[in-house]
């Protein structure tokens, strides 16, 4: 009964918050953006500027692995916008009829070889990763960075036996930072954001880059504001921010 009362109270709050949702720019609203964890730094910066340009609006982010976010959205999480780290994950949301309109690719992320500072194993390119004496971490193929890595290695014709298939790119990066592995294939943005790691670009990366799609969600509480956010992310100003963080602009 206590639980029921608490739920009723929560439910009672909701209309007060979202009451003015009709007008495009009426103040006191919260835009909820679900975004891939690799977008954390850039989206937060863009969010501050968006709030400045839309007085009275607050942007709230849910950062997590793309697949987790997709699962949450498909189970009915009340978000306005979804930005995924790969097309496949976005497709799973679109196919479930949970996007409003076609997703657009707003940025792309290329892979780099991350090595511990000083590059103790002397890695120079993708071919070095095939050396059995080199401990390599890749992302698991189930997650976007793993799929991209597999694609890149295939394209280069390099066969790697990794010591671990990490559950996400941050975990792979951590192994490099701690010196537990000699190299890992991660995104360029992660190399730039990481501590004590160096990035080694490689030619085959271009063919295996990840496109980041973004879409307004079908059940968005604030569809107008959500469209504003998508436009903002695609604008030249925002693209500069992405480039600074290591992304390749559209």
């Amino acid at each position: 009964m206590l639980v029921a009362a608490a739920l009723a109270a929560l439910a009672g709050c909701a209309p007060v918050d979202g009451g003015g949702a009709g007008g495009a720019d009426s103040p006191g609203r919260t835009l909820t953006v679900f975004a891939a964890a690799s977008l954390t730094g850039t989206f937060e910066e863009l969010g501050e500027r968006f709030e400045r340009d839309h007085p009275g609006t607050e942007v709230e982010f849910g950062f997590a692995g793309s697949s987790q976010l997709a699962a949450q959205i498909n189970e009915g999480a009340p978000a306005d916008v979804f930005a995924s780290a790969d097309a496949r994950t976005m497709d799973s949301v679109a196919e479930a009829g949970n996007t409003a309109g076609e997703p657009v690719v707003f940025v792309r992320n290329t892979l780099e070889i991350a090595v511990p500072r000083g590059n103790p194993a002397g890695i120079t390119g993708l071919a070095d990763l095939a050396d059995p004496g080199v401990a390599v971490a890749l992302c698991a193929e189930e997650v976007p960075c793993g799929a991209a890595a597999a694609q890149a290695l295939d394209a280069a014709g390099v066969r790697v036996t990794p010591v671990s298939l990490e559950e996400d790119v941050k975990a792979a990066l951590t192994k490099v930072e701690l010196g537990e592995v000699d190299a890992a294939l991660v995104y360029r943005t992660d190399v730039l954001a990481g501590d004590a790691v160096e990035g080694i670009p490689f030619d085959e990366a271009a063919g295996a880059a990840n496109d980041y799609p973004i879409a307004v969600l079908a059940e968005a509480p604030h569809p107008g504001l959500a469209r504003d956010w998508v436009d903002w992310v695609c604008s030249a100003d925002a693209q500069r921010v992405f480039r600074d963080a290591g992304f390749t602009a559209r």
């Binding site: 697949s67 698991a140 189930e142 298939l165 990490e166 951590t174």
Partner: peptide, 27 residues
Amino acid sequence: TITFAGNFPGRTQTMPLAVYLAMQESP
């Protein structure tokens, strides 16, 4: 486990790790 032992099928991939990664593709 996934942090210290990593994830490699047959060597360090235990059931919970397999469950987590399977979750990424198909619930």
